[in-house]
Simulated scan of single mutants.
Amino acid sequence: MNGAEHAKQAVPFRCEGVAVVLLKKSFDQYRVLMLKRAGRILHNEWCYVGGGIEKGEKAWEAALREVHEETGITKVRLYSANQFEQYYSPKEEYIYTAPVFVGYVDESQPVRLNHEHTEYQWMTFDEANDNAALPGIDDILHFVEKHFAKKAPSKWLRIHGEND
Rank of each mutant, 00 (worst) to 15 (best):
Y96V: 01
Q86S: 15
F148M: 05
V49H: 02
M1K: 13
H117F: 13
G103T: 10
I95C: 10
I137V: 13
K55E: 14
K36N: 10
E57N: 05
H6K: 01
Y30E: 00
P153E: 00
Y120C: 05
V76S: 03
E162A: 12
A133F: 10
M1Q: 04
Q121K: 02
Y104E: 15
A149S: 11
A128Y: 00
S26T: 05
V20H: 08
H43F: 12
G52H: 05
A38L: 03
H142P: 00
G72F: 11
V144D: 02
K8W: 01
R14S: 09
Y48L: 11
N2P: 05
W122G: 06
K58R: 15
E45V: 11
G39P: 00
S80H: 04
D126N: 02
Q121D: 08
A10Q: 10
N44V: 00
Y96A: 14
F84H: 15
D106R: 11
G56E: 02
E85F: 09
D106S: 12
H117K: 04
D138I: 09
L22G: 01
A38T: 08
R40Y: 10
Q83C: 06
A152Q: 14
E66T: 04
E70Q: 14
E145R: 02
D130L: 10
P12W: 13
I140Y: 00
P153Y: 01
Y79F: 15
P110V: 13
R65W: 04
L33K: 07
G56H: 00
A63M: 05
I73E: 04
V67K: 03
G17H: 06
V144N: 00
W156K: 15
R158F: 11
V18R: 06
E107G: 11
T97F: 13
V49P: 07
E119A: 13
E116Q: 14
R31D: 02
A62Y: 01
D138E: 14
L42G: 02
S26K: 08
V21R: 01
A81Q: 07
P110G: 07
G50Q: 04
V18T: 09
Q29I: 08
R37W: 09
A81S: 12
R37L: 01
Y48H: 15
G52N: 14
L42V: 02
E16C: 12
K75Y: 15
R112S: 13
Y88W: 12
T97N: 09
D28G: 06
Y79T: 06
H68C: 03
G103V: 08
P90M: 07
T97C: 06
P135M: 00
Y104M: 15
N2S: 06
I140T: 10
L42P: 00
P12I: 05
R31W: 07
Q29N: 09
